[in-house]
Amino acid sequence: MKTHIIFGLTVLVLIIAFMFGSSYYKGKQAEKIGFMAQENASIFIRDHSQMFGSDDAKVYLIEFMDPACETCAAFSPFIKQIMDANPGKIKHVIRYAPFHHGADNFVKILEAAKKQGKYWETLDIMYKSQRYWASHSNPQPQKIWQFIPQAGVNVEQIRRDMNDPAIAKLIDQDLADAKTLNVRKTPGFFVNGKPLQTFGSRQLLQLVQDELLANYPN
């Protein structure tokens, strides 16, 4: 009987230690990143970063994404929903973390489309056609070119522009920032420098709402 109690208590202690340890670690991590947000805001937003939303917006929703990432595509309508529900208050910032093999090419296409003023249209088309060219079991990156014209861009121009070394450089910069901020999966979200601690749409909405409340007290 005594042994059962010892065993049961040990299991309990282990579980509590795990839970305590993880909340302690996440707290420390958030503190560290919060400090970086104050000291060095450019880690979150670089000059080259594509942004969507009003210039007066006080809530910055920073997303480290990969055009070939399914979850990023799945989150895209959700982010639009949040932004539509809070007009003028949120700014969506796109950062790149092309972790999928060969995904930096898709980022290059996106950046080349930016030069034609068709960034968001191209990203939208990429997300919508993603399952045809970025399937995990059978990736066919060449197929993306069938869909790009739907964004209303000059495809020949994109093929020329995407090899601009400046684009490769900005991808490297974003990857370096992702590493500093401990982004290991996409999408990686930060709201005004605060990391999304547990992943999920409900949690993201909560984080955005907290920041909205803090910056727009009624």
Binding site: T10, V11, L14, F18, G21, K185
Partner: peptide, 17 residues
């Protein structure tokens, strides 16, 4: 058990793949 929990901690809390 401690090792198993440690490995889970590395992957799920510290997010090492």
């Amino acid at each position: 058990s401690v090792s198993a929990m440690g490995s889970l901690f590395f992957s799920y809390v510290m997010e090492f793949a």
